[in-house]
Amino acid sequence: MSVVVGVVVFPGTNCEMDAVEAVDGLGGTGRLLWHGDDDLSGVDAVIVPGGFAHGDYLRPGAIARFSPAMEAVTRFAADGGPVVGICNGFQVLTEAGLLPGALQKNSGLKFLCRPTTVRVESSNSALTVSAMVGAELSIPINHFEGNYTCDARTLQQLRDEDRIVLRYVGNPNGSIDDIAGVCNEARNVVGLMPHPERACNELLGSTDGAVLIRSLLAAAA
């Protein structure tokens, strides 16, 4: 039986079908989960996808984190279930306190939508378990608030605990320490600003994201 990945949909989410397509294309089964449901329907992993949940009003992710689905995701994560937040999903996970830090506006003042190169810094996370440390992947970004920040103590902790899983090669947005993705202490919750689900098909110009989605499927199996 294939791994079932739940993809949480909030009002304003717009990358859910990209995530489902990527999962399905790699042998898993993507299943949409409505934000109002306090039930993950027995999925094996969760993706909180990109978009503008609740219009990004107040702050990106600030309202989405109070959704019944996020309470279920929080319990799922606490039980060790693999959870990945992509772009807006990363913002939701930081607001929910499942990941440290916050995403501030890009330092270059612009909304950025273009391919970036990210380097795998740790293969010890739910999103990178099948990837090689040092591998450079071409994966697009699409955000205005993707400039990762945290206090000095948190940054030191992330470094010491090998929790910076992806770094930009050529920092596009001002993120502290070139951080593109981080994981939690238990390494089952990962957030990243780049969109691996948009780099899983030759038609989209890169298949480098596939190794990350495949890692999630492996972590869930």
């Binding site: 600030a62 607001e95 916050a102 920040t149 945290c150």
Partner: peptide, 8 residues
Amino acid sequence: SFLTNPVI
């Protein structure tokens, strides 16, 4: 708890 994100 809600109106601000104390990190930023």
